[in-house]
């Protein structure tokens, strides 16, 4: 980055660090913090959508759908989330390739599972082996997003289901008395009022989601943990910037990053709770009303 960085071996002290911390690999490391933020920003609404679907299914009058919804929201209770993170991308990948195989190569007669191999025709590979590197990386990233959305959707389904039940029954009865259909009452009365009841659970879920982001590493995405391991490992003199095992310091940096992120989120969510309780018939809203202006 700086002009004097062309020959790192001649540097020492502060200049060495300035060059070391701005070399190409470190830029990729800083970029991976962006990957984490992108993951958070995509996963949060996706998980909310999954959760909303799950909660709606669990309330459905149609029995099979209700059972599916309840099973979906109950599964995270008994099964470790890490098992899902390992299973979902793997299974999704094979499922998609299986579907594409049947769609694209109908006259292929060899079995797909041959012993310990999973063989589909070349046109069904996902992503195609001819596609460039970034397609593979993006595909892997979105597989990870999907795994996160499935797991956190199940948590969100728990929270939203509870929130829907917390809306006072009298509100729904009033809606029925006005002649609204079930669907109208759900969308116009229940959904707008449930958020304040869901907020404590959802803000907790956001904190959990933040703390789950390093698990991206397990899914093979080049995230901050990957780079911290990569850059921190001891480098011999054949590298431009030789150093000892510095992984401890890199992980300390990540620790500080996460502590900061959770701290800031806590403050923002506290403010959001205050704003949303405004004018609500809850304890928080009542306290705001009584407080001297």
């Amino acid at each position: 980055m700086f002009s004097n960085c062309s020959d790192p071996s001649s540097l020492d002290g502060l200049a060495w660090f300035a060059c070391y911390l701005t070399n190409g690999k470190h830029m990729a490391f800083y970029g991976s913090f962006g990957v984490v933020m992108v993951l958070l920003l995509i996963t949060a609404p996706a998980a909310l959508a999954f959760g909303f679907g799950g909660a709606m299914a669990a309330r459905s009058p149609f029995l099979p759908l209700r059972l599916i919804g309840k099973a979906y929201s109950a599964m995270v209770r008994g099964i470790p989330d890490i098992a899902f993170f390992l299973f979902v991308p793997f299974a999704m990948d094979q499922g998609l390739e299986w579907l594409r195989h049947h769609a694209r190569c109908p006259d292929w007669d060899a079995p797909i599972r041959q012993g310990n191999d999973f063989v589909v025709c070349a046109a069904a590979k996902l992503p195609l082996s001819s596609s460039p590197q970034w397609v593979h990386e993006t595909y892997g990233f979105f597989m990870a997003v999907f795994a996160f959305a499935v797991v956190f959707g199940a948590f969100a389904a728990n929270v939203l289901y509870g929130a829907m039940r917390a809306v006072p029954r009298a509100q729904m009865e009033t809606a029925e008395a006005y002649g609204m259909s079930d669907r109208q009452a759900f969308w116009r009365i229940l959904v707008p009022q449930m958020w304040i009841y869901a907020l404590p659970g959802l803000s907790n879920l956001w904190m959990i989601l933040i703390k789950a982001t390093p698990l991206l590493f397990l899914l093979g995405v080049e995230d901050i943990v990957y780079w911290a391991k990569e850059l921190g490992g001891a480098k011999t003199t054949i590298y431009a910037y030789p150093h000892d095992d510095w992984r401890l310091y890199y992980f300390l940096g990540l620790l500080v990053f996460y502590l900061g992120l959770t701290r800031i989120s806590e403050a923002l969510l506290g403010r959001l709770t205050r704003n949303l309780s405004h004018g609500q018939a809850t304890m928080g809203g009542e306290a705001q009303r009584k407080a001297p202006a």
């Binding site: 933040i210 703390k211 390093p214 391991k229 095992d245 992984r247 401890l248 992980f251 996460y258």
Partner: peptide, 12 residues
């Protein structure tokens, strides 16, 4: 902080 990072930090 994430437990995952705590494990790494402790190990290192």
């Amino acid at each position: 902080s994430p437990l995952f990072i705590q494990f790494f930090l402790a190990y290192e």
